[in-house]
Amino acid sequence: MKKLSYIILGLIIGALLTYFFCPRNPELDSMQTKLETAEKFELPKGLLKQDYAKELNNNWTKYRKPAVDSCAAMGGHKEDDRSVWWSSKEIRNYIKYAKKQADSLDYKITGYRVYLGVYGQEAGPEKCDLTTMFLVPTGKKRHAEASVSPFNFRGNDQDLPIPPLNRGGGGSGGYPN
């Protein structure tokens, strides 16, 4: 029995010496840490091939642009906006803002909806009657109202009472070829 304890003690000491004195590859350790802490993501649903996106944009130009621009011309404008641009910083900032607002109102954000709108007289002569787009957070109450039915017939993605994001840079150009 005494010899067995010496063998076990020897194995433990040998394992510790191996651990502390064997060279390690810090580059490999660093890569492992980066892999473990890297943000995981899912491939977004609804991705388009670039060629198909160009085709859709060309279809809009062919079938909608003349009608939209003729309406803009009645308001004294050469052409209407057909896209809106926000910087990635603005979008990230808005998402943080919307989440904070939703939390304070006891809502859970489930997505964002993009709406088309048209500026009125209050926007001034340079924007009046022109198209705009704005982003609205959608979601549901965190603590649903009690119900006998286990089904929610009202839908889960209602527009939340949070100020939408507008004032992106407008553009009349189409999808880049």
Rank of each mutant, 00 (worst) to 15 (best):
L35Q: 14
L35S: 10
Q101L: 00
Y107K: 02
I95G: 00
E55W: 10
L43A: 07
K89M: 07
W60K: 04
L35E: 11
T132R: 04
S83W: 11
D103Q: 05
P164W: 07
R64G: 00
E79Q: 07
V118G: 00
A98V: 08
Q121S: 10
W86S: 05
P137G: 02
M31W: 14
A144N: 09
E42N: 12
E27W: 00
S104K: 15
D106C: 02
P164H: 08
N156D: 15
C22S: 14
P164S: 09
K127W: 15
N59S: 10
D103V: 00
F151A: 09
P26F: 07
R24Y: 11
Y63K: 11
G155F: 04
G139R: 05
A73N: 09
N152Y: 11
P137Y: 02
V84N: 01
T138D: 05
G75H: 10
V136N: 03
R64W: 09
Y119D: 14
Y119N: 15
E122S: 15
G139K: 01
A146E: 15
N58I: 00
V114A: 06
E39V: 12
S70W: 01
C128S: 15
Q50K: 13
E145Q: 14
K108H: 06
D81V: 02
F41A: 15
Y112M: 04
Y112R: 03
E42M: 06
W60Q: 05
K127G: 00
S88C: 04
L35W: 06
Y52F: 13
K108T: 14
L48W: 13
E145Y: 09
F21S: 10
W85P: 00
S149N: 15
L43S: 04
N152M: 06
W85N: 10
S88M: 04
E39D: 10
M133A: 13
M74C: 06
S104H: 11
V136R: 07
T131P: 06
D81R: 13
P150M: 11
L105H: 02
I91R: 03
G46E: 08
R113F: 11
K40L: 14
A146W: 08
F41Y: 15
T33E: 13
K99C: 01
K54F: 09
F151Q: 09
V114S: 05
E36F: 05
K65W: 01
R92V: 11
R64Q: 14
A123W: 08
E36H: 07
P163K: 15
A123P: 06
K62Q: 14
D81L: 06
V118N: 05
S30M: 11
D69V: 04
Q101D: 09
K65M: 07
I109S: 05
M31L: 14
G117M: 08
K108F: 01
T61H: 02
P23L: 01
K78T: 09
R82G: 14
I95M: 15
F134I: 03
A98N: 09
C128T: 11
D80T: 02
P26T: 05
